[in-house]
Every structure is written in C-alpha cells, then in structure tokens.
Design a protein around this nucleic acid. Structure first.
Lengths: 216, 216
DNA sequence: TCGAATGGATAGTAGTGCTATCTGCTATCG
DNA sequence: CGATAGCAGATAGCACTACTATCCATTCGA
C-alpha cells in the first residue's frame, strides 16, 4: 500500500507519518522506484504501536525512538535485549546525587534485601525511588518511607503478573513488544486501577450517607 | 523574607518564582508597600511542593495550578474537596467515545462488580482504563484483558495502604496535601517498585548463569 | 497523456516552561 | 541625603517538542 492508505488504515495523518519516517520511528517502505515506496501491515501495526505509546502511555517521541531501536536491535542475547528495552522505559536518573540521595538509595537497598528482592545496585529504579523519598522528606512527609515499605511488600504480586504476561508471548518479537506494552500501558492501567481501589476503599471506610445498614 | 531569600531557600530561580506568581501557582506575598512584598515559610513549602509535583511527579504547570486551586478552595465539605482534588490528578478523558470504548467501559464495570469494588459509573479512571483496553486490543494484545483482571484483583491492597496514609494526617490541610503527595509521588514510586519487582521475579524465574545450585 | 498522488526536503506553527530585560520604585548604608 | 543595590511587575524572548504546511520533481493510474 502507499502512504495515503497507510494513513487511512492507521488513523495517523500523512504529514505525521512522514515526520515519523524522518525521525526513524517508522522504518522506510520498500522502494519500488527511486522515489516511490510501498508499505505493508507491519507499518500499520508499528504506527498503532507508536500512537499507543505516545497517547496512552504518554511517552515522548524521543523515548519511543529509543525503545524501538532496542526492540529492532540485532543483539542475539535475549536477556540483554529485554534488559535494554526495559531500561529505555525508566526516566533518566542522571543528575541525582548528594548525600541525601545516597542515603535514600541505601535505604531502598535495605528494603529490597529485607523483602527478598533480587536486584542489582545500579538499577535505575533504585535511584528513581530514592529520589521520591528525598522529595517526600523535603516536604516534611516523614511517614512516606513507611508507606513505601508497604508498597515494596505488595508489589512482588504485580511482578509475577507482569512476568507471566511476557512469558506467554509466542515469538521473540511478540515478547519484546509485550515488555513494552505491559510496562507502558501497564503503568497507565495500574494508575487507573489504583485510583478506583482508593475510591472503593475510601467508600468502604467512610460510607456515604444512605448506604449503612438502615436504622430503626 | 524577600524574593531572593525565597529563591535561595527553595532552590528555585527568581524569574521562575515570578512566573509561578503570574500563573497563580504561588500566592502573592504580603504587601509592605505598593511595590514590595514579604514571603514566609509557607511560600518556601509551596515552592518545594510545586517542584516535587513537576519534577518528580511529571505534572504540567497547568495541572499543578488546577490541583492547588482545589486544595486552596474554601469548600467546607471535606469529601467533596478530596474528591475534586483527586479528579484533577487523572488525565482528562474527554474525547474518548465510540462503541469500542463503551464496550470496554462496560467490561471494566463488570470487573469492578466482580471484585467487590465500590465505584460510581462516571469515575474518570473507568474511561481511562477502558481506553487502555481499547489500545491493547487494537495492537492485537488479546490477553491484556486477562492481565488487567489480575491487576484489579491485587490493587485493593494498594488502596488500603493509600487510604491509611491519608487517614493518618493530623490536619485537614495535611490530609489534602497527603492525597496529592500520595497519589503523585505514589505513582512514581509504584512505577519504580514495580520495575524492581519485575526484575526480581524475572531473575527468580530465569536464574542468571552462576546462581543455580552448583552441579556435580 | 495528463491530473492527482507520492516521496523527500525545508520551513513554519502552537504550546509549554521557563529566562531576560526594562521600568519605576524602595530599602539601606555610609 | 544621596548613592547603590535590590524589588515588583510587565513585556518580550528563547529552547524545545510534536507536529503541519508548502514546495517540487517524479510517477502512477485512468
């Protein structure tokens, strides 16, 4: 198919498709002559994928490019590919330093030890989590660290769900895509379910007038 | 104190403080003369709060303004205030429509019923979650709905943690701030802990060479 | 054959989040 | 009292992101 049909089938405007081609987010079509190209279903899927990451997951175009480059990489070691894909999905944590940050990182590591996590010390999520702790501390929210401990206690259940999801993929490409979909759409989904769970728990604890057992 | 000291104590540049004043994100200082103002510790705290929401939580300036306006509101009904504050923290879901979206919303509602959530039908998180389902479907990830079900099954535990956190606040203002801190920093924290839990679970399931029980 | 569409290049635009400059005033120190 | 530094407020500018529009030579399809 040519670009106008690609546009129609993916719901993405033609100039935007050209922009994505320039940005290396969408691979070039197959040339049929020096200035004509043909696109296929893979391009349609890639476009939908990109739009989902940007619109639903809130990723920037630059992050999407990074992620896709890693998915498309020809690295043979699957673990390595999965790892670098995951890494591209965490906000950069450079520029986080100072004694407060390092103390918080140690505190995070202690928590991970305590709850039996397997981890490596330079995992970017450790710096990210420590950064949150430092920010909460600066706001005088001293109970936040205890709050975090409880998250650490329950999240392994989510980890199991997530790895189950990835493991069920049938091909390596599908597995790599599942990592991204599971992580990015998963973040959005978890944020939404969490709010619903908060509302629900709040309603249970403080019943709105009229929903208690009726009085005499 | 005056603006330069406010800048020094909060770590926010003077022009940025002026910008926040213009945007209504930072309340004006107390006038001491037609063109002089005095700021206090409340301003320092507010600035730190704003920076945490923007830098750690990734909120936009517009969202921060919305949230703060609701915190500062003089609405007497606490439930109402808490509710509107929470509402400002979900991405807008207008423009989500179509049969696929509505079917997905019904599916979400069914899930909530099944797991005993208390909810109201126009909760924005329902539309948001349905939107994620529609996007996953469009990518051919048909197992995603099952995946979501498992999130719905575990998230009530997080809801309890979150409401506990808010409930422990000592004043109404602190409670309102805890809602925001718990939600916004909480989202960031949960994303980080989730990645650590994924890495951990993955390492347990597929032990890296050298960590199995040694062979003969 | 000839008009519409295509690919590719270049330039322009809207929105966001600051940052710089300017103006007239004020605080303060010697 | 006067010099000087700092302040508040207004306006303009800037860098970046994610597109969008225009142009042109080429090519497809009727």
């Amino acid at each position: 198919m040519r670009i106008s049909e690609l546009s129609r089938r993916s719901g993405v405007a033609v100039p935007t498709i050209k922009y994505y081609l320039r940005e290396g987010i969408l691979p070039p079509g197959e040339r049929t002559s020096p200035n004509q190209a043909r696109y296929d279903d893979g391009h349609v899927h890639r476009l939908r994928f990109v739009r989902a990451l940007i619109e639903v997951g809130g990723l920037s175009v630059a992050t999407v490019r990074e992620v896709l480059a890693r998915i498309d990489s020809d690295e043979a070691n699957l673990d390595l590919r999965l790892g670098t894909v995951q890494k591209a999905l965490l906000p950069s944590t450079d520029g986080l330093s100072g004694p407060a940050q390092e103390a918080a990182e140690q505190e995070v590591v202690n928590l991970l030890e305590e709850y039996g996590y397997r981890y490596f010390r330079d995992h970017p999520a450790i710096a990210s989590l420590a950064n949150v702790m430092v920010a909460a501390q600066a706001l005088g929210h001293n109970r936040f660290a205890e709050h975090l401990r409880r998250y650490v206690a329950v999240m392994p259940q989510v980890g199991v769900i997530d790895i189950d999801y990835i493991e069920q993929a049938r091909t390596i490409d599908h597995m790599l895509e599942s990592v991204v979909v599971g992580t990015v759409l998963g973040d959005t989904a978890i944020a939404a379910v969490r709010r619903l769970a908060q509302t629900s728990e709040s309603a249970k604890r403080f019943p709105p007038r009229g929903s208690e057992t009726p009085g005499p």
